[in-house]
Design a protein around this nucleic acid. Structure first.
Lengths: 129, 129
DNA sequence: CTATCTGCAAACGTTTTGCATCTGT
DNA sequence: ACAGATGCAAAACGTTTGCAGATAG
């Protein structure tokens, strides 16, 4: 609750329900997953509110938007440095906590200012293989 | 032309135009980019044909579908091992030719059979910064 | 000749938007 | 009080699909 207040955004009941759903959530939910979960408590919940809240969290760097699933955006409340492993069949996503040395020499960055990186591993999960 | 024949798919004029547009193309075009380019030569070109051809190329492993751009799929005719660097502002994508050791120990793969990986670097290109 | 491809339009799933109403601070 | 959030519906966007007619092999 304290950490939510630090976000300096209005703490509506709907947002608190979204925050609670995301807290320690390791499932990398999509917007629809979040919508469905919070809708149980707030039957009038709308997608606009879900996306609006996710946008606020993204801006405040309290959530990571994942592009690893080609069909929809997935969200990860864990903003610590880590990577992801996705099952190409069922799209279950696991966290990969390992540091890699991903420094690039100047001649490889083509004048870009580097801001970050992420590694995606693809595979088949135990249930799908 | 020889390499196209090896794909064992029907070589229609529309497909050949798509192949020619993709050959040595380093811009990582979206389906729409391809559509617009080929439409100049074939005014009746349809998205169905673009996606159909991209699907065939994917199946034959002659093209890579990139997920680095969150708003749309991008395609890379270069199937050699390499990674990508995207400008978070203008979404220009550059290739990064460097090998990294991305092996994962058994305890990190959670029982998955690993099939592949890719690294995405984010940054600001010289024009955008 | 026929299996496959094309082109069109409609459908789809996800995400965004406009706007009137409501609410946290 | 009022900046900013909600909820609803419509729209936007990229992508997929169904199907009738065309064409490569």
């Amino acid at each position: 609750m304290e950490e939510y207040r630090q976000l300096k955004i209005k703490l509506t009941p709907q947002r608190i329900a979204i925050f609670d759903f995301l807290k320690d959530n390791k499932t990398h939910p999509s917007a629809e997953d979040i919508f469905k979960a919070v809708q149980k408590e707030f039957p009038t919940m709308s997608f606009a509110t879900v996306y609006n809240t996710l946008e606020a969290l993204k801006t405040k760097k309290n959530i990571q938007e994942l592009k690893i699933d080609p069909s929809k955006k997935r969200y990860d409340p864990d903003c610590s440095t880590h990577h992801h492993l996705i099952c190409t069949n069922c799209r279950n996503i696991k966290d990969v906590y390992k540091d890699f040395d991903l420094t690039l020499s100047e001649d490889l960055t083509e004048g870009f200012d580097l801001l970050g990186n992420s590694i995606e591993f693809f595979g088949l999960c135990p249930e799908c293989k």
